[in-house]
Amino acid sequence: MSEKSNLLQGPLKVVNIGLDSFADELKSQGVEVQNVDWSPPASGDPRMAALLSKLGS
């Protein structure tokens, strides 16, 4: 078991995956953000995606 979450102590360092606007709003508040240019894993190939999740990628 890892260390318990200490998220509430802040400050937040956020990885945003999905809507860009969420990252923009966090940045405008001065929150440190890495915005991921996300696309479906394995270009949406379900067989590859299943294999990848079993192989722990």
Binding site: S39, A42, S43, M48, L52, L55, S57
Partner: peptide
């Protein structure tokens, strides 16, 4: 180069 990452990210 990890082939898992190559396939995952495209």
């Amino acid at each position: 180069i990890d082939i898992r990452h190559v396939v995952e990210t495209g």
